[in-house]
Design a binder for these strands. Sequence first.
DNA 1: CTGTATCCGCTATGATACTG
DNA 2: CAGTATCATAGCGGATACAG
Lengths: 134, 134
Amino acid sequence: MDTVRISAPHRELLDQVLDKWSLSVLSELCERPCRFNELRRAIPQVTQKSLTATLRRLERNGVVAREVVSTRPVAVSYRITPLGKTLRPPVDVLLTWAADHMPAITRAREAFDAPGGVPGSDRSESSDRSESER
Amino acid sequence: MDTVRISAPHRELLDQVLDKWSLSVLSELCERPCRFNELRRAIPQVTQKSLTATLRRLERNGVVAREVVSTRPVAVSYRITPLGKTLRPPVDVLLTWAADHMPAITRAREAFDAPGGVPGSDRSESSDRSESER
DNA sequence: CTGTATCCGCTATGATACTG
DNA sequence: CAGTATCATAGCGGATACAG
């Protein structure tokens, strides 16, 4: 009844901000401003290309700011913006959720991926699940 | 300074639960259990294939339950699980954030995508910034 | 009704090389 | 250091056909 009903624009927005690497980057920049390569080191799995793309997207959405220092060689620093900071609590809530329920999720996955030995875990017919769950 | 530091497993988990259609589906199932085609109607943009995939993934992660009623033709009902319900507050916070900051984001995007007429909006050199980080 | 199976094109992503 | 350019590949989403 309550709960904000999701709309297309909302989904699109969250797609931009909560994509594959955004959370990691945001989480990192919330701690301190970072240079490009600092971010790479902090998030080893991301490729240069994807990191660049992510930073651009975040910059475009106004949550991250890019600063170029004209030294030689140039130094570029990324930092969270005020708007970006407002994203912190929601993200934090999310990460907390993830941390809290990780075990349950893992269990659910294992049950689902069950080697087939477990009866009742079958995904076909089962007129109704009156079975004493859990 | 604190903020939960994101880890690979967390990111992977959120990728599964917060993907393109998950929020829409979850948001729908939070309201009431739904049949497959009810969901399709509720989320017109999703294709059958993607909806199936999304439901499977959510089911695997234990946030959605699938119930098959052996009528003829069969009826399948999806509902949110207790675990799935715990996802509600975080998601709600997120959607609220999106709603609240949508205007700011839109403005940021327009500034970024600037037709090139606006000086200073250029993404290259901006020599200032004395620099001294940590 | 509720899917599974295919083909297909687009995009995202990774690996690698090159530039200012 | 901080990217851009390019190529190759993987996976997703769309459309369509078919099945229990």
